[in-house]
Design a protein around this nucleic acid. Sequence first.
DNA 1: GTAGGGTTAG
Length: 606
Amino acid sequence: MHFKSHIFPGRSLQGTVFPRNKQGIKQFSSLSIDESCTPTITDLISKQHWSKLKTHVQNADPTTVLQQLLNSGADPELNLRYLTWSQREFKLSQSLELTFRILHSLALAKKYSKIRSFLDKFVKDEKDYSVSAVFHAISLSGDSFCVKSIVADMLVLAYVRNLKTLRGFEAFKRAGDYGFKLSVTSCNPLLSGLVKEGKIRDVEFAYGEMIKRKIELDVISFNTVVNGLCKVGKLNRAGDLTEDMKVWGVSPNVITYNTLIAGYCKMGRIGKMHKADAVLKEMVAKGVSPDEVTYNILIDGFYKDENASGATRVFGEMQRKGLKPNVMTYNILINGLCSDKKVDEAVALWDQMVSSGLEPNVVTHNTLLNGFCKNKTVNEAIKLFNDMAKKGVDPNARTYTTLIDAYCKDRRLEDAFALRDSMIDRGVFPEVSTYNSLIAGLCRKGDVEAAMKLMDEMAGKKLNPDIVTYNILIDSLCNRGESRTAVKLLDEIFSKGLNPTHVTYNTLMDGYCREGNLRAASNVRKRMESKGKQANVVTYNVLIKGFCLKGKLEDANGLLNEMLERGLVPNRTTYEIIKEEMMVKGFVPDIEGHFYNVSGTDSKRK
DNA sequence: GTAGGGTTAG
């Protein structure tokens, strides 16, 4: 018997005009429903007799059938099953209204996991639905405001978990418009997603909204926002937030403090490790005990600040406190020693690590491998690389990239490309950085054509050039005295949605400086600053060098003063560039490397 | 299952 004739014998469904309820959803009159029909359909759905169901409904409008099911009060789970089946079978999208009415009824029945998995698929292949249309559908989906909030909440989470953070944020805002109450369970991942995408303004907006909407923020919410603020260098705001959270009855925990410490460590400011140490003292004073992570962050911070003795001191303190160094601690130490060119000590530490019962992981291997490479002992690196296979530590893309880069820098391009082939053979997929190393190698050789060919190969593998790729190209052009061509790449960078980094601008400035075009260099600086990027130490080094080369020592000195006033720490290069000139002008460096003006009355210029 | 730490390319 045919489904169509079952419901409305002798009438075409499509032509039927149904009365609408107040929400504008078509409704069946109870009189027009053949009571025996829905049980048949629900029975077929529950038994998953899809082909029978298909013959049953094929001449009916699938949407109308869905409405029929909804209004018959059938099990929402079966309605959902019919919904997904009909969409797949008839290659159509059921209306948002009906879809969310089903979700509403599922939520009423507390079948949350069904909703979760449905929404997961929904946000994955949702076509042109605007978030506002979806929210309109939610608002019409039923009577229970509370249940609608739950569905909205799950929708936000579904967006975020499927990396559609922007839509998640949009949904978060819409939820506010409708007054739906969201939970920290979805807001926290949203905050976290926004932080990962560097959308700190949105993070701050969402945070403010959460407070306004009286969503009870937990320690994770605060820590996520603190982390976001730290990532963009807003350390003061991050610190304030740590105070604010107490007002909301949430106490900072070890993760809050670790995040702050890491924030200070990553900042290129003068006295940053002093600040980091201050946070450490503060947390102890507040009764929060530092853990392994705290010490790992500090050790790494001291090494990156080129303060090996500080790092050693903290490492000792960690052990005195009874905290056991873990694999990551050793990785940090080994990396620190390698960057301090003390590869032998790094190897000794590796042995110490092994004898303490810890197993070097792939990062440990990559770190030491890199140490060997950077210290011109590529053969040692190869030995270590071969050891990995024996020990069953799988090399990853970074392992290969490190070696490939070393080969390239060693002008062994053939070996580099052979390694690229071998990694592919072993199922390790090259990354953009792998190609970047190879492109840089070819550029160094002056083989721009081959570099371009490699870019095509990347495109074929769906690997998009990143900002480093462009920086390499820019550097290569600048080295050939084609800074004017290089600067044109900036537009292309923006058009690809990439953001130039300090390196990008600094490389261009360096190019112009070496061409003696200080005016163009300072224009690049202006352009950089107009994008909200302040000159960093390298910027100053490049410009100071440019001025020195032109004999404009007054200007060079002015730049040095400017960088000191801005709290930037001149590095070894800065001093190497200007040492002679500065000494001539009556400045001598002190032990810490800061200049005293011995001829003037100025106090120490830090 | 939710928040913090380490390795590559410029």
